[in-house]
Design a protein around this nucleic acid. Structure first.
Lengths: 407, 407
DNA sequence: ACTACTTTGTTTAGAACTAAAATAACTTTA
DNA sequence: TAAAGTTATTTTAGTTCTAAACAAAGTAGT
């Protein structure tokens, strides 16, 4: 019950780095307060990091009424990470710097159903890695649509990919000789939001993605909730309609089977709103052009999502709900149905909960995956396990090949 | 991010006591393993506790192949706690020993809507306390139907009691000069389950209560999830029926407005299944006597609850669901609707999640509230804040008035 | 200009842990 | 019955933190 993971020092040491990376320069005093350690220890740890070349002293910040603070900044060449998005028919890569900025990205066709998936993926990754700059590569984060036993283990269960207990983590690790963290793609996004996005200012929030499917990442007290078997957040399969359409999971009337991109397009085709070959883009275009039928389809989806999210908000009491995913491109149309349904289904005291829709980019999924690597230093609960330790080691030792802790 | 609460020693020290209380005698080696500290430290801490008279050495346990373990047991007169259940028309008290056993209990009529509620409650409590034995009273736990800002603060928001931002915690604390922990009643039950019940063996579980209303307590990684404003677990207000009956919260078709005791009785009366003055007991009796209409009412409630819980299981991925509350007396009848609806609405991989129905007693609510006090020693996250520290202090110092830590 | 007050950062002494070696008290095996 | 193997507990010699005192570097009031 009382938690004391060994090697707290390492955690704190790289929490300093991660925090500076995520939030920009800060003074020793700030860091000590933020990380909840004594100023004395902060002096000592930063001294080591400075002499290791991971940190640099910057200008003085204007005085707050006392001695002005000496700001500390990250030496940006300290590390990079690679994020991978895996879906059924392609993979996407990004390389991010220690501050989360995207340095490079790429996308490759890919077939998740072959028997050689894992070695194929390793090859693609190897090629992408080779193109990178000469900065220590801290690790690889992989986001998959499905549940993952533990980030550091990386055994994947995914109906969407047709994977059953696939040892993605251990295989990539062996092939690439690098720390590999595997996580559900929505949870990875939640980690990214926590590190770089709106979640920086909130300890309890919900990340909801709409697109092909519907998913959620739950952040509680600053940590992503994974549940017993890493399957938390599968809100796409919340039962909504008693005798609804067949869902990919085999059940009928799941939320996803009603508001996923596929079903929406189906309805639009059936209603003659778009052509038989038209896709979600066509449907959105129709709604943008004031087609009542198209608008109604989005609005109804919003209505259903709103009622479902209201239930989740009652269950989890988040401070804020963040909407992400490809589907947000049509959010304007969703919102007509969403807002009234969502608000009116909430208990009065909860009715003010904030809903924010963030801009979405193609590479966002992969960027989220990369955040897994950058987030491990924060990981005092050690969700990432052994791989987390390896990332920390690389962060500190690869950049400072000389002896550490010398007198 | 890196958490280090000051005074870890105190936490560990009383985690020893709480663990021995909850799980019975154990050896130093066991304790060291369970609390994740070194054997060396355990030797030292138990030496202090032994000399303080809080622990006693018991018989040797049979050897496990090596040196036999010397068991340590709690001196049961080390402490007691009082639990209070507050509802609109009465309050119930229990006094529990350090091992969670009920020593005394009482129930008093009470009006939660008067302007003098708080002083009334304090008076009733004072009287109950006075009847107790001469054992250090560690603190008071209070369970309320509503949300509480923080356990240690105890500001209550409850439509059921008609309370708006009532400073229950601070008032009782001032009146009684004792540590007071206030918590939502279902969350308190979840704490009790974690400490003494099925939750002892699970880190992720869900406690669901059925009765007048419907509520849930969510335990994630061993800790009760409270959400942003302490409002997590209000599953009674998950929207279920688009145009359902009016709920106490002002909305229509909430889960609670369909499967709460009140609504079930209403339907039964309307259908002539029980008399106009009959209550839930009459309805249960009818179902027990094979009345099809009565059975159908319970079964339908089970059906709705099953579908709603399936959604929650998808969201949270608990290992086990524990059903509690007055309504469990009729669970046999609920289950005909619950089981098929629940299982069939779950994704195949989740379909095996365990559902356990525990026996329910009148005093269970109050007993749960008392567990708040006994749980604070475990509380390494310090949910209970200042009051937690006070409980810890009383546990160690009241029982050992002589100087501690002497050479 | 001088004093009082704030805030940052450093030093130092000591508290709280741990790891590893030593010791104790068995069981099992030859 | 002695040697080897296990498990429990204690001792010892650090390591890692903190608290508290101090030093540094400003602002603000008089």
């Amino acid at each position: 019950m009382a938690t004391r993971s060994t090697g707290r020092t390492d955690v704190t040491r790289s929490a300093i780095l991660a925090r500076l990376g995520a939030l920009g320069p800060a003074s020793r005093a700030d860091l000590a307060r933020a990380l909840n350690v004594s100023p004395a220890l902060m002096t000592q740890l930063t001294r080591e990091l400075l002499s290791d070349g991971l940190l640099q002293e910057l200008e003085h910040s204007p005085s707050q009424g006392g001695r002005p603070a000496r700001m500390l900044g990250l030496v940006s060449s300290a590390g990079r990470a690679i994020g991978v998005k895996v879906v059924a028919d392609h993979v996407a890569f990004v390389e991010v710097g220690i501050d989360g900025t995207v340095l490079r990205s790429a996308s490759e066709p890919f077939d998740a159903s072959t028997t050689t998936v894992l070695t194929d993926l390793a090859s693609l990754l190897r090629r992408f890695i080779a193109g990178g700059r000469d900065i220590p590569l801290l690790g690889i984060g992989v986001g998959v649509p499905g549940s993952v036993d533990r980030q550091g283990n990386g055994v994947v269960e995914s109906t969407q990919l047709g994977w059953h207990q696939v040892p993605l983590g251990s295989t990539l690790r062996r092939e690439l000789k690098l720390p590999v963290l595997v996580e559900n793609n929505v949870n990875a996004l939640a980690v990214a939001e926590r590190l770089y996005g709106l979640g920086r200012n909130h300890e309890n929030f919900l990340v909801v993605t709409i697109g092909t499917g519907v998913g959620a990442g739950v952040v509680v007290d600053g940590v992503v909730l994974r549940g017993f078997a890493g399957g938390a957040g599968e809100i796409g399969h919340i039962p909504v309609a008693e005798d609804g359409p067949l869902c990919s999971c085999g059940n009928h009337g799941c939320l996803e089977s009603l508001v996923g991109q596929g079903p929406l397009v189906e309805i639009a085709r059936g209603g003659g709103i778009i052509s038989k070959s038209g896709g979600i883009a066509a449907l959105r275009a129709a709604a943008d052009a004031d087609d009542d039928g198209a608008a109604e389809i989005f609005s109804h989806a919003g209505h259903l999502l709103g009622r479902a999210l209201a239930g989740i908000v009652h269950t989890l009491d988040p401070e804020i709900v963040i909407i992400l995913g490809e589907g947000t491109a049509s959010w304007k149309h969703w919102s007509y149905g969403f807002e009234p349904a969502f608000r009116s289904a909430l208990v009065p005291s909860r009715r003010g909960v904030a809903v924010e829709v963030e801009t979405w980019q193609d590479e966002s999924w992969a960027q989220g995956a990369a955040a897994l690597v950058m987030a491990t230093p924060f990981d005092s609960v050690d969700i990432a396990g052994d791989q987390g330790r390896l990332v920390r080691e690389r962060l500190v030792e690869q950049s400072a090949p000389h002896l550490r802790g010398a007198p």
